[in-house]
Design a protein around this nucleic acid. Structure first.
Length: 783
DNA sequence: GTTGATAATCTTTTT
DNA sequence: GATTATCAAC
């Protein structure tokens, strides 16, 4: 009893691990809910003797799935056999492929991502001759997705919208919806929603199939239940109907995916569907300090629509929440850098225990620039993802064509990459011929010779491409995924064209292609699968390559959405400006604003020990005009007493002064902000936090701030150091760019921005305080 | 018919 | 700041 719970020391968690039957766990942030799930799995296997293959654990991201698998493996080293831990989408894809093969149908469907969906709608609009400006594809896609989440097909949607006569938009949407479904069918493709919907339809219409899966998955666990949509709810309901051993874990305060169809009804319907369900509330937080938690509680109390919950913790007060009002995004980024440097110096903080969170991906750019200039290693999660780069998408498109010659969207992408002399007109001819003859587009290419109006070099190139794809398709059973990557890169002339460019950018792309090859090889090693279906599925469903390098000490940058489920010792939450966070698009509607607030709640509760907030106050619009923004209302919703305003970045952690002395300078700065917000320098914590009992919930370790100084990374010394001064015309050496000449200096001292001309590389803008510049003097100083 | 260049247009969040 | 619509030149 309780064997697995020693580290949590919470009796009510036993209800989660040992519980029978339907189990609804309402768990607050940092209450160890994911750990409770893994312990439940361990308990089932070790003490109940449940064979691992009877367990299905559904997580929200692939990353979470990987982590859960690792944790279970650590708890049950003797594990024999596989536990199915996966996201909803990959679970469904696997089920659909398996059932398609069993039923003798094609299991090789493609999975269309958002970009593919948009391309499909664009094509439909152009056929219908509707202007994209008047009929934005995104609007249709959103409506279609909503309908699918509600398990409505195109025909039902049309019937429903026909009932509301005169509804212009609904009727247009119905038309696009129908054409969209036909186009996907023609392409032998499913979108993200289809994966769920088709699986639910399969289960609900084929009881025999469902019964097989019910028998296989006797214990079902679902994490982040508050983010499930209706289709996911139906899926779980169907699967769990057999053995009713369903354990769902969720927190309504962390529901941040309403835009994607997440539906709070699911938690309510859970108690309705399973009247015998045991409900467990986990309200003790094991993650954060009291300060962090109070801030989070105070914020989320401003939401009306929530179940009452009050998180508490035995952890100590901890450090105050830092707040910095920046002048620009660059200044904000510099604040992050210098604060990190100070932290490292004072506490030996590790970079990988810190994260910078922001509302939108676009906010990462200035951060990256400054971090690069400072030489601080970081890891960007999400953003311009690996699989979204052009060269990767191109090669993937070739691969998809090999696997599925009907994939017009992919062919449209690469038919003229590299240049084959194909423009819109030729493409239309290929499409038309393909449709008329009922031949998949890729196979049509082989017959390009018969196409009227296509001749000469263009014709030859098309035939060659068609034959290449056909040849590779013959090899689907024999070649490994990485072989296809290589074959496509070389034989389609793709790498050749890149090499011919001879630019730095092309070099990067070639490197990325090598990386893709490596990933394919890794996939093959892990699964032993030949062919492409599995690899392409992984590519489509995996948001991000698992560059989960725990070994490297790097700062993490990501959106708040991506951060859900993670925790960091130190969290910077940047861009707390009205219009950014909360986002402008949410300001009109109360429900949307509450979701933004929950999002902010999620961000705050990622922090274990230290939370640093900042706002910018102005933003550059696209035409270069600065636009003033008010500080986020969320700042006003935090208890002022918990905040400590940081005037200069170095003031954090003392920076040479008395650490207990409140800093007041910035409180009144900036347009009308100080008074309105009511920030008072009321901070009375000692930031050195000496010997507060339980202040640091780190088991066995020394308290953070009074720990002996650890070796300081080179960059921290650099940032903290006084450094040199520079003058225009001076020669300097950069570790990466080599020698160059300073052509312009803006600002003074460590904050100066240097423009340096590097021969062959052009002009680079560097920050004096961060760039690892050496002066190139007479003695050649290599020191 | 295709290509290159210039002009215009928005910016959430993700499987 | 990056992607897309439009237009003039090969």
């Amino acid at each position: 009893m309780g064997t697995y719970l020693e580290d949590l020391n919470a009796p009510q968690l036993e209800a989660v691990t040992h519980g029978d039957g339907p189990l609804l766990v309402l768990a607050g942030a940092g209450s160890g809910k994911t750990r409770a799930l893994t312990h439940r799995i361990a308990y089932l296997i070790k003490e109940r003797g449940v064979p691992p293959w009877h367990i299905l654990a559904i997580t929200f991201t692939n990353k979470a799935a990987g982590e859960m698998r690792e944790r279970v493996a650590a708890l049950v080293p003797e594990l024999s056999g596989d536990i199915w831990v996966a996201t909803f989408h990959s679970t469904c894809a696997r089920i659909l492929r398996r059932e398609a093969s069993l039923a003798g149908r094609r299991p090789d469907f493609a999975i269309f991502d958002t970009a593919d969906q948009r391309a499909v709608v664009r094509r439909i609009l152009s056929v219908l001759r509707w202007e994209q400006k008047k009929f934005p594809p995104a609007a249709f896609l959103a409506a279609i997705s909503t309908a699918k989440n509600e398990m409505l097909g195109a025909e039902e949607f049309a019937a429903r919208s026909g009932g509301q006569r005169g509804d212009f938009w609904a009727q247009r949407t119905a038309r696009v919806f129908r054409a969209y479904e036909e186009e996907l069918e023609r392409n032998n493709a499913l979108d993200f929603d289809d994966l769920l919907v088709r699986t639910v339809n399969l289960f609900e219409s084929h009881p025999d199939v469902l019964a097989r899966y019910q028998d296989r998955f006797r214990y079902i666990l679902v994490d982040e239940y508050q983010d499930t949509n209706h289709a996911q709810y139906r899926l779980v309901r169907a699967l769990a109907a057999g053995h009713r051993n369903l354990c769902v874990v969720g927190d309504d305060d962390q529901s941040i995916y309403a835009f994607r169809g997440a539906d709070p009804r699911n938690i309510l319907e859970f108690e309705r569907d399973y009247p015998e369900a045991v409900v467990v509330k986990l309200e003790q937080n094991y993650r954060s300090t009291t300060t962090v938690l109070e801030a989070a509680n105070s914020l989320v109390r401003h939401n009306d629509r929530r179940k009452h919950k009050h998180l508490w913790t035995e952890n100590g007060i901890g450090e105050p929440i830092g707040f910095y009002q920046a002048e620009s995004q660059k200044d904000e980024a510099a604040f992050v850098c210098r604060t990190l440097a100070a932290l490292m110096r004072e506490t030996g903080e590790l970079l990988r225990r810190a994260a910078v969170l922001y509302r939108t991906n676009a906010q990462s750019r200035p951060l990256e620039e400054v971090l690069n200039a400072a030489g601080i290693p970081y890891q960007l999660v999400g953003g311009v993802r690996f699989y979204e780069r052009k060269e990767i998408k191109d090669v993937i498109a070739y691969l998809r064509l090999v696997a599925n010659p009907a994939d017009t969207i992919s062919l449209e992408r690469v038919i003229n990459v590299p240049r084959r002399g194909v423009g819109p007109v030729t493409w239309e001819r290929v499409l038309k011929a393909s449709a008329e003859e009922g031949v998949p587009v890729a196979e049509m290419l082989c017959r390009a010779g018969a196409l009227s109006g296509v001749a000469g070099k263009t014709r030859d190139e098309l035939v060659r491409l068609g034959e290449l794809l056909a040849e590779l398709r013959q090899e689907l059973k024999h070649l490994r995924p990485q072989d296809f990557v290589r074959a496509v890169c070389q034989r389609a002339g793709y790498t050749e064209a890149l090499r011919a460019e001879r630019t730095g950018e092309a070099e990067d792309r070639l490197e990325n292609l090598d990386e893709l090859h490596r990933l394919a090889a890794e996939y093959h090693r892990a699964t032993g699968e030949a062919g492409l279906a599995g690899f392409l599925e992984q590519v489509a469903l995996m948001g991000d390559i698992d560059e989960y390098d725990e070994g490297k000490d790097r700062l993490t940058l990501m959106t708040v959405h991506s951060a859900k489920g993670l925790e960091f010792d130190t969290v910077f939450l940047v861009g707390l400006d009205e219009g950014v966070f909360p986002h402008v698009r949410s300001l009109g509607e109360a429900g949307a604003l509450e979701e933004e607030r929950r999002l902010c709640y999620v961000a705050i509760t990622r922090a274990r020990r230290r939370l640093l907030l900042s706002c910018v106050g102005r933003r550059m619009t696209y035409d270069g005009q600065p636009e003033l923004m008010a500080p986020s209302r969320f700042l006003r919703e935090l208890p002022p007493g918990l905040l400590r305003v940081i005037a200069r970045p170095a003031d954090w952690l003392g920076g040479g002064g008395d650490p207990a002395r409140p800093v007041t300078v910035a409180a009144g700065a900036g347009g009308g902000w100080g008074a309105g917000v009511g920030l008072k320098p009321a901070f009375t914590h000692r930031s050195a936090g000496a010997a507060q009992p339980g202040a640091v919930p780190k088991p066995g370790g020394p308290s953070k701030l009074d720990a002996a100084p650890k070796p300081i990374a080179a960059w921290a010394l650099r940032v903290a150091g006084d450094g040199d001064t520079y003058s225009e015309g001076e020669r300097v050496r950069h570790p990466k760019f080599g020698e160059g000449t300073i052509v312009r200096i803006l600002g003074t001292g460590q904050d100066a921005e240097l423009t340096v001309a590097f021969p062959g590389l052009g002009l680079k803008r560097l920050l004096a305080g961060y760039a690892r510049l050496e002066k190139v003097s007479a003695d050649g100083g290599d020191g």
